[in-house]
């Protein structure tokens, strides 16, 4: 059975942690990291800051909390609002769509606050962010991206490699999973062109294959703007577009040139 939204695979590919990320052991707190909180009637109901234990602040007055972290970016959300968003988010399809909704609502709340220009301090993935942005105006209304992260040759072989197919429709991420290639012979599975053609026919959307080394991908995924590195990898054939489409290559190059 195909899972149309394989969350584990999605996280593994786009938000790698543990072994692949730097600092797999205990990570010390970052004294400038943004602080998030949910409050109700001027009392902190929940607090969050990456690598920092804020549990002692739960039940404290919001004023004291803000004062303590006055040198940091603080996001304060009302409990009733958060509950309402979670309730409304139930109608959105899939966790990714729900998350996007929560972020948009939180961002709108911050913008409506004292700091009108503020953005929600959040970590994003460079590729997902681009596909969500103005690339959507250039790319077809429905398309798929087949990512194959190839393990270093020394480690060897196919099992260590991993792949994911993400499908966008009307600018929204529709599905993400490890595609079923069992319909292909083992010989054809080794041919990137055959794989991408098979996926396009099976999922009825144009598919852009991206073949890249797992280590390169993991490094880029930790970076918010790795486009110049991506462009270099494309030029030096460390990354392969299958089929090679000038339009996609130009998009990569443009981002690399603009430095974002």
């Amino acid at each position: 059975m195909d899972l149309s939204n394989d969350w584990r695979k999605f996280q593994e590919v786009f938000f790698p942690t543990a072994k692949t990320a730097a600092g797999a052991g205990v990570v010390q707190r970052d004294v400038s990291a943004p602080v998030y909180s949910v409050v109700e009637k001027d009392i902190v109901v929940a607090g969050y800051c990456e690598h920092e234990d804020l549990s002692d602040w739960v039940g404290s007055p919001v004023g004291d909390f803000k004062n303590q972290f006055r040198n940091r970016e603080i996001v304060v959300l009302e409990r009733a609002q958060v509950d309402q968003w979670m309730n409304d988010g139930l109608s959105k399809p899939g966790f990714h769509g729900q998350l996007e909704y929560f972020r948009s609502m939180a961002e709108a709340t911050i913008k409506g606050g004292a700091r009108g220009d503020a953005k929600l301090p959040t970590r994003t993935h460079f590729l997902l962010e681009s596909l969500k942005g103005w690339w959507g105006n250039i790319l077809p209304s429905a398309f798929g991206i087949y990512l194959r992260l190839q393990a270093p040759e020394a480690v060897g072989v196919l099992e260590a490699s991993q792949d994911i197919l993400v499908i966008y429709r009307r600018g929204a991420l529709e599905s993400f999973n490890a595609p079923d290639l069992s319909g292909l012979s083992s010989e054809r599975r080794k041919q990137p062109g055959d794989v991408v053609k098979y996926l396009s026919e099976r999922y009825l959307v144009p598919v852009q294959g991206v073949y890249v080394g797992a280590q390169d991908w993991a490094r880029w995924s930790q970076d918010s703007a790795p486009w110049s590195e991506v462009a270099v990898a494309l030029r030096s054939s460390r990354m392969q577009l299958v089929p090679f489409r000038w339009r996609v290559a130009t998009l990569v190059a443009t981002r690399a040139f603009l430095g974002v």
């Binding site: 938000f15 998030y36 409990r79």
Partner: peptide, 13 residues
């Protein structure tokens, strides 16, 4: 629940 909600907003650990 709220902690996980905030963690997801921040895309943090």
């Amino acid at each position: 629940s709220y902690s996980h909600f905030l963690q997801n907003l921040a895309s943090g650990r």
